[in-house]
């Protein structure tokens, strides 16, 4: 099958799912339901894009298909920020209620953290990208220790609020934030455009990339920052969905069987939109809210991944 046909199939599935999601099961208040759902769809497209896109880039930089960008501790940092805000100011405080402020603080701190991490590690001679990741991961564990400590101390009712934040949700998305995120992601993508040609070469590994004239440190540093910004935005907007990227990018690799990044990026974006909307349909219309979408996505992502690991395949 030609790759463009495959892309067409994915796009059609995505569109069909969007239509089903928007216009079925509307009840009597369609003038209220449809715009509400449209906001959800927009949020899904935005976060799905950000996550798929950044995971493809991240896996190419790390030359590895088992890693996701949140591994550098961004998820844990987000949880720590949320827990701390609730711990320090209480769940009813302005910062939690005022979503814009919370959004700004979260994105700002996450990007700052990633920036410091990169800066610190790229300064060292002979940096190894896995070293960076492991340090990030350990920092993540550290953040987790702090948050779980605070979670134990705070009032059980407040814990409920924290727990809600542990799982991504597409409900109650603030339209202003959606707009802000959209603009931010658009700007980042425009900035990224000039690096896209390097991705195929980067997937040959560091030495080959340098041999072929890529200014490796310069390019990789900037790509990593792009990745951190995208992940921070999507996490602050809806919450952490750790394994979505892992799932969709690997499906894209299996489906397209190519190394061409233009196909991989657009393919994974479409697959993640399909996964999220399909998942939401299942959660809202089949399970009727008994469980959270991100939990299901992480579950499916996890199981699928263990399957990939067990299957005779040595591509990592």
């Amino acid at each position: 099958m030609h790759k463009n046909i495959k892309m067409g199939i994915l796009a059609s599935i995505a569109v069909i799912l969007i239509i089903i999601f928007l216009f079925t099961d509307m009840g009597n208040y369609w003038e209220y339901v449809v715009p509400n759902r449209a906001i959800k769809i927009l949020a899904i497209i935005l976060t799905g894009t950000a996550i798929a896109f950044s995971t493809v880039v991240f896996q190419t930089i790390t030359n590895n298909r088992i890693l996701t960008p949140s591994i550098i501790g961004l998820d844990s940092l987000y949880m720590l920020i949320q827990t701390f805000l609730i711990f320090a100011f209480g769940s009813s405080s302005l910062t939690v209620m005022n979503k814009s402020l919370n959004f700004m603080i979260s994105v700002g701190l996450m990007v700052l953290f990633a920036g410091l991490l990169y800066r610190f590690l790229f300064k060292r001679e002979g940096q190894n990208i896995y070293f960076l990741l492991l340090v990030g991961l350990v920092m993540g564990t550290l953040f987790q220790s702090f948050s779980s400590f605070m979670q134990v101390i705070i009032d059980p009712n407040e814990f409920q609020v924290v727990q809600d934040r542990m799982f991504a949700s597409f409900n109650n998305i603030n339209t202003d934030l959606l707009l802000v995120s959209f603009v931010l992601i658009l700007l980042v993508s425009l900035y990224f455009a000039r690096f896209i040609k390097y991705l195929n070469v980067l997937s040959l590994g560091r030495e080959q990339a340098i041999n072929l004239g890529v200014d490796y440190n310069y390019v990789v540093k900037r790509l990593l920052i792009v990745v951190a910004i995208l992940i921070s935005i999507s996490t602050a907007l809806v919450g952490p969905i750790t394994f979505l990227g892992l799932l969709v990018v690997n499906v894209a690799y299996q489906f397209f069987k190519t190394y061409q990044h233009t196909h991989l990026i657009f393919g994974s974006i479409l697959i993640s939109i399909i996964a999220l909307i399909g998942g939401l349909l299942i959660v809202e219309r089949v399970f009727t809210f008994s469980t959270t979408l991100s939990v299901i996505i992480n579950f499916i992502g996890g199981v699928y991944f263990i399957y990939l690991l067990l299957k005779e395949n040595n591509s990592w």
Partner: peptide, 22 residues
């Protein structure tokens, strides 16, 4: 400039593990 240099000099290391199928 790294790209200009890549037109002048090339290197092949002994171990080449490439993760993608080419």
């Amino acid at each position: 400039n790294s790209n200009e240099l890549a037109k002048k000099i090339s290197i092949l290391k002994q171990s080449n593990h490439i993760n993608i199928r080419l």
